[in-house]
Design a protein around this nucleic acid. Sequence first.
DNA 1: ATAATTCGTAATAACTCAAGTTACATGAAA
DNA 2: TTTCATGTAACTTGAGTTATTACGAATTAT
Lengths: 152, 152
Amino acid sequence: MKRDSRLSSVLHALLHMESHGKPMTSEDLATCMSTNPVVVRRTMAGLRESGFVRSDRGPNGGWSIACDFDRVTLRDINAALGEPALFAVGNRHENPACLVEQAVNAALDDAFDAAEALLLERFATVTLAALAADFRRRFARHKSENGTKAHA
Amino acid sequence: MKRDSRLSSVLHALLHMESHGKPMTSEDLATCMSTNPVVVRRTMAGLRESGFVRSDRGPNGGWSIACDFDRVTLRDINAALGEPALFAVGNRHENPACLVEQAVNAALDDAFDAAEALLLERFATVTLAALAADFRRRFARHKSENGTKAHA
DNA sequence: ATAATTCGTAATAACTCAAGTTACATGAAA
DNA sequence: TTTCATGTAACTTGAGTTATTACGAATTAT
């Protein structure tokens, strides 16, 4: 089952955009997301509609951050992508006439609903600012491990 | 993203097999799972290897239950299917060099791991016997609602 | 033995859906 | 008015699943 990596890609893009300082073109972003500009525009469109980023045309145009990283969570970003299906597994028929299948679906749905609730709850606890902070921690450690050979 | 419905299908099949009493052919099962016999054999092969069902060739052959419904859970059945990926969403690169992407992946993985653990835990609490009992409850209610007009 | 039934499985075809691509229109800046 | 950049529709590609075909192997009944 092929996985949808748009959430991962978009977060990656947002963090790069923040440290970049000035607008990044779809082409820039496509390079860093290893995809192509049209896909970037399609994907980012949802974020723009939700007000998390803005896009400007023409020379010096491109994508820029339009939100407070402290106030936006992974859950918000996921919602802006259109709440893509989180689970790869599901019921064959959503409203089966067969009572056996109804019993099976009910049991599976209970479990999936609980897991989905937990996942979204977790997403809601992670702000973009927290992600950015984690990146800076990794960056600092990376520098201290690789920057001065004396410490190796 | 299309969903994998093998778990749902297989549970459906197991419950039918139990009430059927005698072996069911791949063709019988294909009808009730709305697929075709070869797919049934492929799907059930995992359950046979795990010892939950048996298959016999030749006339009067077919598939039959080979386990105690009280001792087998949804988690066991899911494992017998080869632990198919549960999530439709994932990271673009599993081991990225980019530190930004590493930070993003770490956050997402935390959330997914927690949700997966919960889901499997839930699966482990539901036995096939419980599913069968739930079906019988539904069947009884169905009869009382439709069988005697006096109660309507 | 022989015919009929049923599973086992490899090979292949058909289908589905997301991602990628092309093409062109729109708008902004210099 | 030229250049840069996004917006978007239409189309192509490609990966992954499921369905189908075809044939082999095992089992039962006669």
